[in-house]
Amino acid sequence: MTVEAGSVGERSMLERSPMARLPDRALRWILTALSFGILLLLVYFFGKLSLESVDVFQHQGILSFVFSNDWNPSKSQFGGLALLFGSVATALIALVIGVPIAVATAVFIVELCPSRLRSPLTILVELLAAVPSVVYGLWGVFFLIPRLRPFEQWAADTFSFLPWVGGPVAGPSYFIAGLILAIMIIPVVSAISREVISTVPTDHKEAALALGATRWEMIRTAILPYSRSGISGAAMLGLGRALGETIAVTLVIGNAAVIGHQIFDQGYSLAAVIANEFGEASAVPLYSSALFACGLLLFIVTLVVNGLARYIVSLGDIERRVERARRSERKSAAAPGGAA
């Protein structure tokens, strides 16, 4: 196509004819439009949720809805703090358990495992994503809760010196919900981490090994820093999944609108309350408005949490840059001496 373009009079030889540039422009516009479609969609979504939530905010006040711990729909009291707490607590437990395992799995699959095991292992880990959330929940109820209970009690008794541990163990709990969420986020976090890790340039890895690094040192100095932002992106997806998971959490968290004293207590979450109570609420305008407000609150929490996480990641970037600069300074300062 460029050959034709070169023969046209006024344009330079390398410039394309307007016709030839059309597909490029069109593509650019379409892609941009689709991307901003997401913005529009979420603005509409936000507006719709806000509109549906107005009732309960007028009834209760926004602050009281968010910060009072008193969820009692039969008395028209809608204080959602316990729900908010449950959402955040379970998502944190899920991240703490799930992300290290997922990243380690990714590193193992890409770097450590024999190559013929790579493909089957990949599929096996991804298979975790194939299990529907209702099945995770039911498995949690009928398998995990009864079997883990003695271990939980043992852990609660043994580690009672830790904060948020100790006391009698309830069957359904923050911990069980967090554990199931951890399992559910592993495939997503692991898959993306794997893609990222597998593209670390061989040069970097070989350079590290050539400098005498052990396998682990190579992973620590070449792979993890290079894939950092990709992994944090993966963790963000995992966090989103954990905050928003509905059915599985509803089945295993106990659905008690209280703030538990420890991780083995029963609780509730914003997503769970909607799934669990909407069937009853939809005939009562104030009640259903409160549930929409829970959705709105969760949306805002996700906005804030994601914003915070971005900020932290960006801080890390700067620190790393400074550190790297210092190190290279030190190295260049040391190099002449070493050479001599």
Binding site: I38, L237, G240, A275, T302, V305, N306
Partner: peptide, 16 residues
């Protein structure tokens, strides 16, 4: 902004 919104969208519960 779009990237941020996409991340936020993953956190919207399926029920919502």
């Amino acid at each position: 902004i779009i990237r941020y919104l996409i991340d936020v969208m993953t956190g919207v519960p399926s029920v919502v």
